[in-house]
Nucleic acid binder design. Structure first.
Length: 429
RNA sequence: GGAAGGAUGGCAGAGCGGACGAAUGCGACGGUCUUGAAAACCGUUGAGGCUUCACGGUCUCCGGGGGUUCGAAUCCCCCUCCUUCCGCCA
C-alpha cells in the first residue's frame, strides 16, 4: 500500500511510477480527492467532538453542584451537537473505507533502478550460467513426465483422478527427492534464517498484507465456510509474522525461512505449460524472507538472490538471472530478480525463484514497524523475499539434466546425504 | 461441541457511568550520590491521525464490532480469542 502522504506530497512522482508499470493513473487523482475531502471532514468532526466533550464535563460538574437546570440546558445543547457530529462521522467513515479500498488496489511503485519495459520480452538477462546448449545428449532430451512414468517416480494419472488436472503425485525415490530438496534448502539457510513452520490456511487480512488480496482473489484457493485462504507461498504467513509489532532497529534485519505447501488456482493460465510439473496447483517450496531497515534492503536483496542462485548452481543446473522490467514485476514488488533454470527435456527456461524487494508496500499493509535507534516515533520497515527452492520445476530440471544413457538418474552430489544412501534412481526401486 | 471464567500500557494489575490515556508495582531510560557498581532518591517512559515554521492544539485507540447516554474502560447486544473443566481426536 502506498503512503497517502506521498500521494499528497508528490502526486506527479507517484503517477510517473505507475505509468512505468503501464498502469492507468486516474485512480491517483481520485484518491487525492477523497483524501482531501476526508481530511477537511474529519477536522470538522474532531472539533465538534471536542465541544461535546467539554460540554459533557461541564454537565457533570453542574450536577455535582446540584445546579440541575443549567445542567439540563447544556445537556440539550450537547445532544444537538452530537447529532451533527454523527452525520459528519458517518460520511467520514464512508470516505475512509473508500480510500483504503482504492489504496489496497494500487500496485507498488517500481524502484528507480528497475529497468523500463512493458512486459516479459523487456526483462534484462543479467547472466546465463552453466548453460552449454551443445552439451546435451539424447538421453537428456526426454521430458520429465515421461522419465517419471518410466521410473515410477511421478504419477500424474492417479493424482488427477483424486484431485483433478494440474495435481501431481510423487512416488518412491521421486517422493524422497521432494523431501531431499526441501531439507537441503532449509539446511543451507538456517545459519542466518530462522526456520519457521507456519499455518498454510490464513485469514483474509493475512492475504491482504502481502498484496495477494483484494486484487487477485481468483488466483487463490478459498475455504469459504471458515473464511480462510490456502497460501500461495510462505511469503504470506511470514510477512504477517510480525503483524502490528514494533521491533528495535538493533534487531533488524530479521530473517526467516519456511518450507510449506503452496496452492495456486492458476486461473487464466488454462492450457499453458500444463504438462507434467511445469505448472501445478499444489507444490512444496522453501521461502526465505527478511524484515529490514530501508538502508539494509539493498544488501539483503543481493544476499537472498545469492542464496537462491548458489543453490541452483551447486545442484549443477543451467540457469539464468533476469532483472524484471517495470512492466513485468509483481503487484507488490519494487524490484525483482528471477532465476530461471534450463530444463533440457522440455527445452525451456523455467522460473524457479523470484527474489523481490517490496519496500514499505507490504509492511504498511501488515503494520510492521521499527523504532529507529536514537530517533523518536516509529518507521515502517521493508520486506524482501525469494524462493530458496521451489520443488516441481527443480525436480523436473534435475531429472532431465541428470538422466543417464541407461535411463537412470544420477543423484546430484548435494542431495546424496538426503537420499538414504542411494546414488541413482532407477526403475523398480 | 458443552459449561464456567476472563481479555486494560513492555509486563503484572486496579478502575465497574463524570475531570481516566487510565492508580499502583515491576521493568526500561535519564539524573543525583559513589573510585566504580549496587542500593536509595528525583525525573521520564504507549501507538497513531489532523493541524502548526515551531511552542502547542485537537481527535482516535482499555480484544473487535454495534447500541444506550449530555458523557462509556465502566451499562446492554453480537463476535473473536484465551484459561479451566467435560466430550471428541492425530
Amino acid at each position: 500500500m502506498l503512503d497517502v502522504r506521498m500521494i499528497r506530497a508528490d502526486i506527479d512522482q507517484v503517477k510517473a511510477g505507475l505509468a512505468r508499470r503501464g498502469q492507468d493513473t486516474a485512480v491517483i487523482d481520485e484518491v487525492a480527492g477523497i483524501d482531501a475531502e476526508l481530511r477537511s471532514l474529519s477536522g470538522q468532526r474532531d472539533s465538534l467532538r471536542a465541544e461535546v466533550r467539554a460540554l459533557s464535563n461541564e454537565v457533570g460538574k453542574l450536577f455535582r453542584e446540584q445546579r440541575q437546570d443549567e445542567a439540563t440546558e447544556l445537556q440539550e445543547q450537547s445532544r444537538l451537537l452530537g447529532l451533527e457530529e454523527k452525520q459528519l462521522d458517518a460520511r467520514a467513515e464512508e470516505l475512509q473505507v473508500l480510500l483504503r479500498d482504492q489504496l489496497l488496489r494500487i500496485p507498488n511503485l517500481p524502484a528507480a533502478d528497475c529497468p523500463d519495459g512493458a512486459g516479459e520480452q523487456d526483462n534484462v538477462i543479467l547472466r546465463v550460467e552453466q548453460y552449454q546448449p551443445d552439451s546435451y545428449v539424447d538421453c537428456q532430451r526426454v521430458p520429465h513426465w515421461e522419465i517419471g512414468e518410466q521410473l515410477g517416480i511421478l504419477d500424474v494419472e492417479r493424482a488427477v483422478k483424486m484431485s483433478g488436472s494440474m495435481f501431481v503425485m510423487y512416488r518412491k525415490q521421486g517422493a524422497a527427492l521432494v523431501r531431499a530438496l526441501c531439507q537441503l534448502a532449509i539446511d543451507r539457510n538456517v545459519d542466518l534464517y530462522e526456520e519457521v513452520r507456519p499455518p498454510t490456511l490464513v485469514r483474509t487480512a493475512t492475504m491482504i498484507a502481502t498484496g495477494h488480496l483484494p486484487k487477485f482473489s481468483e488466483e487463490a484457493y478459498a475455504v469459504e465456510r471458515d473464511d480462510l485462504w490456502a497460501i500461495p507461498t510462505a511469503e504470506v504467513p511470514l510477512t504477517s509474522l510480525g503483524q502490528d509489532e514494533i521491533v528495535a532497529e538493533a534487531d533488524l534485519p530479521l530473517r526467516f525461512c519456511a518450507h510449506t505447501s503452496c496452492f495456486r488456482r492458476e486461473a487464466g493460465s488454462a492450457g499453458k505449460d500444463t504438462r507434467g510439473l511445469l505448472r501445478v496447483h499444489e507444490f512444496d517450496k522453501v521461502e526465505i524472507l527478511a524484515y529490514s531497515t530501508p538502508a539494509q534492503a539493498a544488501d539483503l536483496h543481493a544476499e537472498i538472490l545469492l542464496r537462491a542462485e548458489s543453490l541452483i548452481a551447486e545442484l549443477g543446473l543451467a540457469y539464468r538471472v533476469l532483472d524484471l522490467c517495470a512492466g513485468d514485476i509483481g503487484n507488490s514488488a519494487a524490484r525483482t530478480f528471477d532465476i530461471e533454470v534450463y530444463s533440457p527435456g522440455v527445452d525451456q527456461w523455467l522460473e524457479v525463484s523470484s527474489v523481490s524487494w517490496f519496500g514499505e508496500y507490504q509492511a504498511r499493509r501488515a503494520n510492521l514497524r521499527y523504532k529507529p535507534e536514537g530517533g523518536k516515533g516509529t518507521e515502517v520497515l521493508h520486506t524482501l523475499n525469494g524462493s530458496a527452492l521451489a520443488v516441481p520445476r527443480v525436480w523436473a530440471a534435475i531429472v532431465e539434466t541428470y538422466r543417464q544413457p541407461d535411463g537412470s538418474i544420477k543423484i546430484p552430489e548435494l542431495l546424496l546425504p538426503y537420499m538414504r544412501g542411494a546414488t541413482a534412481i532407477s526403475a523398480g526401486v
